[in-house]
Computed example of a mutant assay.
Amino acid sequence: MGKSKLKITNNIRRLRFDADEMTQKDLAERVGVTRQTIVAIENSKYSPTLELAILISRVFGKPLEEVFDITDAQ
């Protein structure tokens, strides 16, 4: 595997909306981070740790692959 940069995208915004319009603050509190961290993750400005990604997935009751996707950013 080369040195291609990977981009992590997510469906958090849609999942929050589907979960009775959960706020970023609500999600942040449930997983133990700041609202700003959730904003950064939603906007693909920050890649969560594996632990945080799993916690977020569990909040929505979805497998990791339905919450996050990883692609080659070329």
Rank of each mutant, 00 (worst) to 15 (best):
A73W: 14
E21V: 08
I12K: 00
D72A: 03
L64Q: 01
E65Q: 07
F68W: 03
F68C: 01
I8L: 04
K3I: 13
L50W: 12
E29I: 12
S44R: 13
D26Q: 15
I70H: 01
V33K: 09
Y46P: 04
I12W: 03
K62E: 09
P48M: 05
I8K: 00
I70A: 04
Q36Y: 10
K3V: 13
S47H: 10
L15D: 05
G2L: 13
V39A: 02
L50F: 14
Q74W: 03
V67Q: 03
D69N: 03
F60Y: 11
A53I: 08
D20A: 03
K7A: 10
R30T: 06
A73T: 10
V33L: 07
R35I: 04
T71Y: 10
R58F: 06
G2T: 14
D26V: 14
L52G: 00
L6R: 06
T23C: 13
D18G: 02
S57P: 01
L15G: 04
S47N: 15
A53Q: 01
I8S: 00
M22T: 08
K5N: 09
I8A: 01
K5E: 13
V59R: 00
E65H: 11
G61W: 10
I38Q: 03
L52A: 03
Q36W: 10
V59D: 00
E51I: 14
R30V: 05
L6C: 02
N10P: 06
N11L: 05
R35W: 03
F60Q: 03
A73M: 12
I56Q: 01
A40W: 08
P63E: 05
M22S: 02
E21H: 11
E65C: 07
G2E: 10
A73L: 15
V39E: 04
I70R: 01
L52N: 07
T49F: 10
A40Q: 15
E66S: 12
R16D: 10
A40N: 15
L27T: 11
S4N: 09
R35Y: 04
R35L: 02
R58I: 11
S44Y: 12
E29K: 11
I41N: 01
K7Y: 08
K7T: 10
N11Q: 07
E42K: 08
K25H: 08
F17V: 14
F17L: 13
D72N: 00
I12D: 00
Q24H: 05
D26K: 15
M22Y: 05
R14N: 12
V33Q: 06
N11W: 06
T34C: 04
I8V: 12
K25Q: 11
L15V: 05
R14I: 14
V31S: 02
A19N: 13
S4V: 13
L64T: 02
T49L: 04
K25D: 04
Y46T: 15
N10Q: 07
S47T: 15
A53Y: 04
A19W: 12
I54M: 05
Y46C: 13
D20Y: 04
S47A: 13
E42R: 06
S47K: 14
E65V: 11
I38W: 07
S44C: 15
M22V: 12
E21S: 07
S4T: 11
D20R: 11
T23S: 15
E29S: 06
G2Y: 10
L50G: 08
G2I: 15
D18T: 10
A53L: 02
T37I: 11
Q74G: 04
